[in-house]
Design a protein around this nucleic acid. Structure first.
Length: 399
RNA sequence: GGUGGGAUAGUCAAGUGGCCAACGACGGCAGACUGUAAAUCUGCUCCCUAUGGGUUCAGAGGUUCGACUCCUCUUCCCACCA
């Protein structure tokens, strides 16, 4: 039991600091039913979670299975500073209203994965606001400028003369102080958070907390392109709130290599099952497409439902394998005859008539499955299914 | 505070009076091939019913038949010195 728990806990992790502590905590739970706390901080800087975030949520859910009580920390105070991690520019400061809004959508999405009964939502504004100038100064005395500048992102920015706000220096300290206040037993985060996570340990020691938190770091999930990290700004993400059809399609569009990574970090399948599949693909007894489909089904089912996932799969096959038209297409209508290029723009499947012309020239545009070659084409009264490329569709009614 | 250098399309980056809607790279889109994968090859990549027209090269003026290119001012960024 303990071994299995530890194996699941360390699954996919990039680095664990003080795994002895984790071992003891899990053992105490299994043998004596004692709970422990696992902290994980989220910045409410964006309203939508994507699968990259869920890597951590999954890990938290695993801990919940084995006695962990999750301290779901909302950084509503630190969000006003902006985490400098991995940024090459100072982050924008968010307004209070935006933060409030983000918090609501954040937590509802998070509870699709987390067990609500074993989760405590905490806001660091509660204690950080009270800290005051004096508390802040004494907190800051725990860290030297030299050490701060050792940080990769800071040193890069410093040497490339990108401005660093002094307030950004405070960020790791405040995050560390959260661990002091919450007396966390374990904190998890992405590998890019290492500095901040270790700060928690250092400060817990400085503030005389008896035990320092163990730290478990998860790798950063690559986005759909398989190279850069999944992020909204890069547009290579799968959002938790994505439609089931989109979600299914997006998962299927990842590369075969990336698929294994997603399995490790996002799937509920056991490590043994995954290894078996991998062997199957390697010796040719299992088609990689099938394996990827299973992954897409699993992920879609998690955020929607098993039925929705099956429908998405059927839909996908209709549209792509048999190159038929999807069942659910946005509909538009217009009065009187309309020029094809204009129609495509009006239906939001082309950004400009210029682009529409180009695509028509290249044979990317279809009406009712028929390739269009005439740029001048006028659409008279009737109903049409317009298509650009493989995935953009629209229905148009011309009166 | 002083002295130099710079700002070009999504990003990087050529262009230093007309041949410029602007080389190239990356990204993106589309086509072929596939498993809507990867890899590869090809085309496109400011807007406009368009063998033409319009608006662009930080901003505002000016010189010129003509300016991304020259001059003046403004804003922002960078380097070196203080």
């Amino acid at each position: 039991m303990i071994d299995e728990a530890l194996r699941e806990i360390s699954r996919g992790s990039a680095e664990v600091i003080d795994d002895e502590r984790i071992h003891k905590l899990v053992k105490a739970y299994v043998e004596e039913g004692k709970n422990y706390t696992v902290k994980c901080g989220f910045d409410p800087t964006a309203p939508d979670l994507h699968l990259g975030h869920t890597v951590l949520l999954h890990k938290l859910a695993t801990f919940q299975k084995y006695g962990g009580v999750v301290q779901f920390l909302i950084g509503n105070f630190t969000a006003t500073i902006g985490d400098p991690t991995g940024k090459n520019v100072t982050r924008k400061v968010l307004s209070q209203e935006d933060i409030e809004k983000n918090i609501v959508s954040y937590t509802t999405q998070a509870f699709k994965i987390l067990d609500e009964s074993k989760t405590k939502i905490v806001y660091n504004k509660e204690w950080l606001e009270e800290l005051g100038a004096i508390g802040m100064l004494s907190l800051a005395s725990n860290l030297t400028v030299a050490r701060m500048l050792e940080r990769d992102d800071f040193s890069k920015r410093y040497s490339s003369n990108t401005p660093i706000a002094v307030s950004e220096f405070m960020y790791p300290l405040l995050q560390g102080y959260d661990s002091v206040h919450l007396q966390s037993d374990i904190e998890i985060g992405g590998t890019d958070q290492k500095f901040n996570l270790l700060m928690g340990r250092q400060l817990q020691k400085a503030y005389d907390i008896k035990k320092q938190q163990a730290v478990l770091m998860m790798p950063i999930l690559e986005g759909l392109d398989g190279v850069q990290k999944m992020s909204k700004s890069l547009g290579n993400y799968i959002a938790v709130a994505d439609e089931s059809n989109d979600m299914f399609g997006k998962v299927l569009s990842i590369s075969d290599d990336l698929m294994w990574r997603y399995y490790e970090l996002l799937s509920d399948k056991s490590l043994d099952e995954i290894a078996t599949m991998k062997n199957g693909v390697e010796d040719g007894s299992l088609h990689p497409k099938k394996v990827k489909e299973d992954l897409a089904l699993e992920i879609t089912a998690r955020f929607h439902s098993a039925d929705a996932a099956q429908n998405a799969k059927a839909e996908f096959e209709r549209v792509h394998a048999k190159s038929q038209i999807p069942t659910d297409i946005a509909e538009f209508s217009c009065d009187g005859e309309i020029w094809i290029a204009k129609a495509l723009v009006d239906c939001n499947i082309e950004p400009s008539t210029s682009q529409a012309r180009r695509d028509i020239k290249q044979g990317a545009v279809k009406i009712n499955q028929e390739k269009v070659s005439d740029i001048q084409l006028q659409l008279g009264a009737g109903e049409y299914v317009l298509q650009v490329g493989k995935r953009k569709f629209a229905k148009l009614k011309v009166k």
